[in-house]
Design a protein around this nucleic acid. Structure first.
Length: 630
RNA sequence: GGGCCCGUGGCUCAGCCUGGUAGAGCGGCGGCCUUCGGAGCCGUAGGUCGUGGGUUCAAAUCCCACCGGGCCCGCCA
């Protein structure tokens, strides 16, 4: 139910009559205006005389409108306000009927969705970059579910590739110690450190060999420069995780880690049982930790899709390579055993830019290594195909903009293989990076701030503000405030903009924050806690300006939800809730509810209840925990 | 060099899709705790919407060029 539907309809009818009186072939669109009421329409493009427009409007203005008021012509504009009293009745009726579902309208039911998000490599903890992905993806899923769409959330476990092998080799080298550490710390943190150290050792080893083979001095110098960088990485890791890193260096320093990883990767891909056992042990340890972090944020995953199973052991990735070679030999090149698909030429020849919504520049894509093992993009095509076959209308993949080209490759290859529908139902939901001031995060270099760290810090800062006496409850509240502030911080910025990570923004506990919203909810809640139940509130003849504004704001909620779900933009909801909270807090200071005279009191209670209802729905969508005291 | 995205008060950002009086927050300054919870509220200062052109009765919004920033252009994921 949308309280603005009838008023909008009434205004549209009036416009229709005006247009026909003027002999126009069409009716202008309705716009929102703040200057002259609420609805507005322009007649500029019909080149009519303003006097005629005014006359036509005047003929109508006595027609006895129910929901709109003050229909008038202003130059070539036709404006009308809302009948606040009638709107109030519509709002109360909708809130009473819909309850927590208020905001839902039929138009926001769009179909069924497979939403894939987070999909972090299972070799380190989730960091703040994954945080943006997870929170965006989760809110997208919540928004779609609020709108009664079938949604299934998937996490793609990238358990293939050389990086995973580094983590496995490192873990096995320090296995006994690692198990002890894991008893005291989260497994993903421990493995993450082992991985970064192992990766550094492997890079140093690989680069040293290259130096020996290097011919000219300049090349040598640049290689040595790279070695220095990795040595610096190791040193820094040593500062924070000394024992663990030292052990990794001690046990692996003399081994050919890079070579071993390539070999282990090959064995894993062919399904060697020993390789499987070793890799899965590490991967599942990390996933346990990642899942714990996600749970803290209120994020649940429905299905965990293992890359190895769906793409490699199933033979799907290989089939894709073979099929592509069979079907389009003229677009396939072989480079020292590696298979390359000329996606650039393919797109050019078949003019696919518009069909698949592609960027103008597409590079060629390598599908296999020379040792025959698959590459990420190839496995991803196999996975995308699998996703497309799960019976959903759309597959929304939340993946950072870095992967624009790779995601374009996925669609192009699916298209080339004849899976045109699959290619079209895959949506790359791109979001921008989270950057640390002055640097890019890098898990390989152990350069990141983990999500757990942020959540801990957020909880700690809010704990100092909690007024609750019992420390136990204070801890619970603080955690929820922390989660709310972190989620809001990531959701309130458009996904298209890079975020410069700043503690004081993420942990902002004041206005334009999750905390501000939670606090507003607590205020509304505690009024209602003390208030009698109101069955049916009538809307008074005279209202405060703030009350009219609040009613309009609340009435707009269904259209905000509609816009947000249509554009897949949870941030619209965040912005709306902030505006609602600002309005409500002003109102709160100005108008006593419980102490108001009879009649007005019931109206105000119902109004506060409507605000609370919208906040609850909005909190559900944004995943902000609801608190009744803080 | 090419592709995609971004550029709005001192700072962080919304508004751009679908053109119609420039909006929040932070920070600054000045106020409000015997009133339903002050993690709040009120007031105030602060903007040629990166620059130049074009389309239009009308441009932050659409088009073109340029400038500045981010990301990508791997037998990494």
């Amino acid at each position: 139910m949308d309280p603005l539907k009838l008023p909008r309809q009434e205004f549209a009818d009036a416009l229709g009559k005006i247009s026909s009186r003027l002999g126009l072939a069409e009716v202008p669109e309705i716009e929102k205006t703040r200057r002259y009421g609420y609805f507005s329409a322009r007649f500029h493009k019909y080149k009519i005389d303003p006097t005629r427009l005014r006359d036509a409007v005047e003929e109508l203005s006595n027609a006895g409108f129910q929901y709109i008021s003050g229909l008038s012509a202003e130059g070539l504009y036709v404006n009308a306000g809302l009948n606040a009293r009638r709107l109030g009745e519509l709002v109360f009726e909708a809130v009473a009927k819909m309850g927590r579902r208020y905001g839902f309208t039929e138009e926001c039911r769009l179909g069924s969705f497979l939403v894939e998000h987070t999909s972090a490599n299972p070799i380190h903890p989730l960091h703040i970059g994954h945080g943006r992905n997870a929170i965006l993806g989760d809110s997208l899923a919540r928004l779609l579910r609020f709108c009664d769409n079938r949604v299934e959330v998937h996490f793609y476990v990238d358990d293939c590739g050389v990086q995973v092998m580094y983590a496995t080799i490192g873990y096995n080298a320090v296995r006994d110690e690692a198990r002890e550490w894991i008893e005291r710390a989260k497994p993903d943190l421990v493995v993450g450190h082992i991985y970064s150290a192992t990766n550094a050792v492997a890079e140093i080893g690989r680069l040293k060999k290259e130096v020996e083979r290097a011919q000219d001095d300049e090349h040598k110098r640049s290689l040595i420069g790279e070695i220095d960088e990795w040595v610096a990485v190791l040193k820094r890791l040593m500062e924070s995780e000394g024992d663990l890193v030292a052990k990794v260096v001690e046990r692996l320093g003399q081994r050919d880690v890079a070579g071993e990883a390539v070999e282990l990767n090959r064995r894993y891909e062919v399904g060697d049982p020993e390789a499987k056992r070793a890799v899965r042990e590490v991967v599942d340890l990390v996933l346990r930790g990642q899942r714990e972090t996600l749970a803290r944020l209120g994020i649940e995953i429905d299905k965990w899709d293992y890359e190895s199973e769906l793409a490699v052991w199933s033979g799907e990735a290989s089939r894709i390579v073979e099929e592509l070679q069979r079907k389009w030999p003229q677009y396939v090149e072989h480079k020292g055993g590696a298979v390359v698909f000329r996606a650039d030429k393919f797109v050019e020849d078949f003019k696919l830019w518009d069909v698949l919504d592609l960027p103008k520049f597409i590079p060629p894509v390598t599908l296999t290594r020379s040792d025959g093992t698959t590459l990420y993009v190839t496995r991803d095509v196999a996975y995308a195909l699998w996703q497309a076959r799960q019976g959903f209308d759309k597959v929304v993949r939340v993946i950072s903009t870095e992967q624009t080209h790779e995601q374009a490759h996925v669609r192009i290859i699916l298209y080339a293989l004849g899976f045109e529908d699959a290619a079209k139902k895959i949506v790359h939901y791109a979001y921008e990076m989270v950057n640390l001031p002055g640097m890019k995060m890098s898990a390989r270099r152990g350069r990141y701030i983990s999500l757990d760290e942020i959540l801990d810090e957020a909880a700690e800062r809010s704990a100092s503000l909690v007024k609750e006496k019992s420390p136990e409850i204070a801890g619970v509240i603080a955690e929820k405030v922390g989660v709310g502030s972190v989620r809001y911080a990531f959701l309130s910025t458009s996904p298209r903009k890079p975020i410069e990570f700043r503690w004081e923004v993420v942990l902002n506990l004041r206005q334009n924050s999750g905390t501000f919203l939670q606090y507003t909810y607590v205020r509304a809640y505690s009024i209602l806690e003390k208030a009698p139940d109101v069955e049916r509130a009538s809307v008074p003849e005279r209202m405060l300006e703030e009350e009219k504004e609040l009613l309009v704001k609340i009435a707009e909620w269904p259209s905000v939800v509609r816009e947000a779900v249509r554009a897949l933009r949870p941030d619209y909801v965040a912005e709306y809730l902030d505006g609602l909270a600002l309005l409500f807090n002003s109102y709160y200071e100005k108008a006593p509810v419980l102490k108001a005279e009879e009649g007005v009191r019931e109206f105000r209670i119902a109004l506060v209840n409507a605000v609370k209802t919208v906040l609850e729905a909005g909190f559900y969508i944004l995943g902000i925990p609801t608190l009744t005291k803080m």
